[in-house]
């Protein structure tokens, strides 16, 4: 099986870490947020068949997360998705739908209760 690695990082490290991965020819596989008591973000990158995940744990949802679209353009869809479903503020997204990426009945449906 391919390797999987999870690295915990802080919000301000994110851009530098992602730049390093970009320089190392890694491709963006996915970005996802999860809510288990606190919010966390996982940025997964793949190269050949390995997977590295940068994890930003214990977010309150009030923080501003810098967008990585200037490094990986493909991140715009994921960042809009996270903003729409979890209400996490992402600053500097190059195509910002401002909450209209998904049509939904309630605001931040994945982040209630």
């Amino acid at each position: 099986m391919s390797k999987q690695e999870i690295i915990e990082i802080k919000v301000d490290e994110l851009i530098n870490r992602v730049m390093e991965l970009m320089a190392g020819q890694w491709r963006l596989v996915q970005i996802c947020a999860s809510k288990i008591e606190t919010l966390e973000l996982s940025y997964s990158f793949g190269k050949n068949h390995d997977l590295v995940t940068l994890r930003i744990p214990s977010l309150t949802g009030q923080e501003e997360i810098p967008s990585i679209t200037s490094i990986y353009f493909a991140a715009f869809a994921y960042e809009n998705e996270i903003h729409d479903l979890f209400g996490i503020n992402i600053k500097g997204n190059c195509i910002d739908y401002k909450g209209n990426f998904y049509n939904k009945a309630v605001k931040t449906p994945f982040n209630i209760g």
């Binding site: 596989v29 996915q30 996802c32 999860s34 809510k35 288990i36 996982s42 997964s44 353009f73 493909a74 715009f76 869809a77 994921y78």
Partner: peptide, 26 residues
């Protein structure tokens, strides 16, 4: 890509699918 996270109960805590079309949008 399927991501699952469980905490030892019969309900999983988080499940995420990254479908190929989502990656092919850009």
């Amino acid at each position: 890509v399927y991501y699952v996270k469980g905490d030892g109960t019969k309900m999983l805590k988080r499940f995420r699918v990254r479908t190929p079309t989502f990656a092919n949008l850009p």
